[in-house]
Every structure is written in C-alpha cells, then in structure tokens.
C-alpha cells in the first residue's frame, strides 16, 4: 500500500496557500511524497482561475475595504469566495503515472480524485455524487468545486467544500455583468449551491475534516501519514509566494 502524506493545515493567507500547493507539486519529483492537504483561509479570500480577468471578475476595492485577499490560481476554472469560516479546501498532489490515475486524462482523473470527498460527505449524512466536469453535488446542488493542473508529470488538484455560503456577500466582492442582474445572480446561486450546514445542520469543522480524511483514506487506497512540509518545501514556499502569488503583476496579468 502506497503511503500518502496528510497535511492537516490551519488557515493561511491566500498567497501562502497557493504557494504551498504549487511548491508541493513542483518538488514532488524530489520529495517522492503523494500529498493530501486540508486547509482554510485567513483572511477570507477570492481566488480566480488562471484564465480569468481580474478586473472583470473581482471588485478589488470592495475586497480591500473588507480585508479580503485576492489571488490568481495556477489552475483554470471560476472565481471562488473562500470564507474564513465557511470554506474548507483540499489539495492533492500525485504523479500522472501513479497507479491511481495512470492513463486517465484530466476529466477521468477528476472522478477518481474526488471519490474521497464524495465518501467523506456521504459519511456525514449527505447523498453526495460526482457531477462532471469537476463538481460534487447534493440533491442536484453544488457543494464542492475543483480545479486541476498538470506540470512536469505531476497533478495538482485543489477544491473547496462549502461549509456555509453567503451569496449576498459573494456578489458584493465579485463583479456582476450589470447591477440589474445582481439579485438574479444571488437568487441563482441560492438555487444551485448548497452547503454542509444547509444539508445536515451545524457540524464542527474538525468533524468535517475527520470525515474527509476517512473518505480520502478509503478512496486513495492508502495510509495517510500526518506530516508537515519537508525542509526543502518550507524553504521554497516564501519564494513562490513572493515571486508569484503575492505579485500584483501575476494577480492582474489578465
């Protein structure tokens, strides 16, 4: 049975979180460690996809005024509001030729790597299921979204589990195409998106974490060994953070 490293992380600023994900992926060839990291965000943050326009998607003035971080991911997909209380994020780093995902393309590997989340949410009493391309839904409503990138033969997949959601706040921070449709968009999110809290009432964050760890343990077919970053990784994180994710040029490049 292949061992996996489990990083049960705390809440960090957006640029540091993204730097950790990228660093673990970049150094995977030398560390040899498959990794599952569970983490949060402090302060709350908006992350936007690699291809998104910062100016068109995010009200950066409003984010600044509310102390909300803004970061551009190295993965595609949409803008996500990571509430410091209502968001739990996971990241997985595994080589493309690992038996778990070997031969699978991006779409195929989403399903396999999301099995752990489906298992974990099901254990909490929700009828969770995978909805291609990259979502997990409960009763047809999205409770988790993920994004993946592949570099140097290594997959990084990260995504959120919505513990609690506030669409009004979300659309205060995100731009809407036109003010007249703001209410409609808020209503649409209320229809299409759900949360752990909405589904099963109040569950402590550590209970959700425990359920996900159990779920991933089963789906990865692996022993999850709690650990931190290696010395090499810990040394690289601040550089990746400074040179990429905390650099306004990177955040505003599109």
């Amino acid at each position: 049975m292949t061992g996996w490293r489990l990083i049960l992380d705390g809440k960090r600023p957006a640029a540091e979180n993204m730097a950790m994900d990228e660093t673990v992926m970049r150094l995977r060839p030398s560390t040899g460690l498959n990794t599952l990291r569970l983490y949060g965000w402090n302060p709350s943050a908006i992350s936007i996809g690699y291809f998104q326009s910062l100016e068109a998607e995010v009200d950066t003035g409003e984010c600044r005024a509310r102390g909300v971080d803004v970061v551009r991911r190295i993965t595609g997909g949409g803008a996500v509001y990571h509430d410091t209380v209502g968001d739990l994020t996971y990241s997985i780093v595994v080589p493309v030729d690992d038996p778990l995902v070997n031969g699978l393309d991006v779409l195929g590997s989403y399903g396999v790597l999301l099995d752990g989340l489906v298992n974990g949410l099901s254990a909490l009493g929700m009828e969770a299921g995978f909805r291609p391309v990259n979502d997990i839904v409960v009763s047809g409503r999205k409770i988790s979204g993920s994004a993946q990138t592949r570099r140097g033969g290594v997959i990084l997949q990260h995504g959120t589990v919505i513990l609690d959601v506030d669409p009004d706040l979300m659309f205060t921070l995100l731009r809407v195409p036109d003010e007249k449709v703001r209410d409609k968009m808020v209503a649409s999110v209320k229809d299409r998106v759900t949360s752990v809290r909405h589904q099963v009432g109040h569950v402590r964050r550590d209970e959700v974490v425990a359920a996900l760890v159990e779920g991933f343990g089963g789906s990865l077919g692996a022993e999850l060994e709690p650990a931190g970053l290696t010395r090499e990784e810990a040394a690289l994180v601040p550089r990746v953070q400074r040179e990429r994710f905390a650099d306004p040029e990177w955040t505003g490049r599109r």
């Binding site: 996809g49 998104q52 599109r254």
Partner: peptide, 15 residues
C-alpha cells in the same frame, strides 16, 4: 486579442 474566462486549458500557457 485577449481571451479570458472560467474554462480549463491544459497546458494553461497555451492561451
């Protein structure tokens, strides 16, 4: 020309 959005493209730099 600038193309943006919430799609996925692998490898990303292709955009």
């Amino acid at each position: 020309v600038r193309v943006t959005g919430d799609f996925f493209l692998h490898p990303e730099e292709t955009i």
